[in-house]
Design a binder for these strands. Sequence first.
DNA 1: CGTGTAAGGAATTCTGACACG
DNA 2: CGTGTAAGGAATTCTGACACG
Lengths: 108, 108
Amino acid sequence: MTQESSYKDKKVITIGVVRELTGLTERQIRYYEERKLIFPSRTSGGSRKYSFTDIELLMEIAEKIEDGVQTFEIRQEMIREKKKEDAAALRKKMLQGQINAQFGIRKI
Amino acid sequence: MTQESSYKDKKVITIGVVRELTGLTERQIRYYEERKLIFPSRTSGGSRKYSFTDIELLMEIAEKIEDGVQTFEIRQEMIREKKKEDAAALRKKMLQGQINAQFGIRKI
DNA sequence: CGTGTAAGGAATTCTGACACG
DNA sequence: CGTGTAAGGAATTCTGACACG
């Protein structure tokens, strides 16, 4: 319901276009995948496909690397952030459950 | 200012992905370009690149063709619509000019 | 008119490896 | 560790043309 569902997250962009958009080399882009920082999907033929969100993420990654942060550390950060987000989402969901139990049922 | 500027109009999708997304054949997609219904940009190497907007347009075109509308007619429609939009945009702009002339200057 | 297809070539992408520092 | 590069192959895309209806 709150879904944007849309364009930004659709994995449709091939690596060559990502290269142009980010200024990174294909080598770098593939390496960040190898280090589990980015997760393109694949075409039936095996070519990588990225989303606009992936591209933004790649640019953040590139900045951190320039600042001397190692891929391992970047990955740790990402995992921590994800955990926080998941916990927040769960709290929100449970609260909504409470609300529904109190008021939702009587809606007739 | 009212610009979405964003993802939806960026030409970044190669024809293979467009094929998957629209269900059209590459032949069809290229033919609609030949008939001036769609205008992909190109990579330095010459490959076509489409936007999400292009994809939506392609699906509308495909529907019309199935309904027996000819590409020539579709093109006429598109041109007429564009003219209408341009005229509306111009009226809006001129009205804004009036408003600015009346009130904008005294803003100090 | 709109689409399929075979043809030949060029651009794109892929993987695994060696190199450097 | 992060990146460059040459290697060989496979998938992708391109154009112009012939075919059908």
